[in-house]
Amino acid sequence: MSRKLGKIAAVAAAASVASGVLFAASPAEAAYDCRYGKVCLNTGTFGNGSRWEVPSCGEHWLPSGFAYHTHSVQTWGNSVTLFWFDQDGQGGYIHQIGFVGQNAQTNLDAQTADLLNYVRVNC
């Protein structure tokens, strides 16, 4: 943990004790670890499991193991639009099924996790 983050955590802990409200980052929250300017997809919730760092801005098919199995997303500088490309045998249709804004960490709902197979990193 960097010195700055350590100080922030200490201040937050002191504030929570002073206010009578206790909170702590779960070990799962510490699993998010995406480089600045990147979007990372994880097969587990809270940034756990296997991680795929989307290589660049623009549109990308999810690799095997992440398509239909992504349960959490971290954005660090760029937002990402989530899609399901429904291949119906006649060319297919693309449906926007979600959006994650800049500098966010979120778990996906079960339906989105089951459908997600295509993303657009918005730079």
Rank of each mutant, 00 (worst) to 15 (best):
Y118A: 03
N107D: 14
Y68D: 06
V100M: 00
G98K: 12
N122Q: 04
V121S: 03
N103F: 14
G77R: 11
F66L: 06
F99D: 07
G77C: 11
T106G: 05
W84K: 14
N117W: 11
V119T: 02
S79G: 11
D88P: 02
V121N: 05
L116N: 06
D114W: 12
S79C: 07
D114I: 01
Q87T: 09
H71T: 12
W61C: 01
G101R: 09
G92E: 09
F85C: 08
W76I: 01
S72P: 14
Q102C: 12
G91Q: 02
H69I: 01
W84D: 15
I94V: 15
G92P: 14
N107E: 02
C57I: 01
F85A: 06
C123G: 10
G89C: 04
V100T: 08
T70L: 01
A113L: 06
W61F: 10
G98Y: 05
C123M: 03
G91A: 04
A104S: 15
D109M: 05
F99C: 08
Y68N: 08
D114K: 12
N103G: 02
G92S: 13
Y93R: 15
T70P: 06
Y93C: 01
V119Y: 04
N107P: 00
G101N: 14
A113K: 14
G65A: 00
V121A: 01
R120H: 03
T106W: 03
L108D: 05
Q87N: 15
V80N: 00
G77A: 04
V119H: 00
Q102H: 11
S72H: 12
F83T: 11
I97M: 10
N103Q: 13
V80H: 05
T75P: 14
A113T: 14
Y118R: 07
S72T: 09
W84P: 06
Y118I: 02
L116P: 08
G91E: 06
S64F: 05
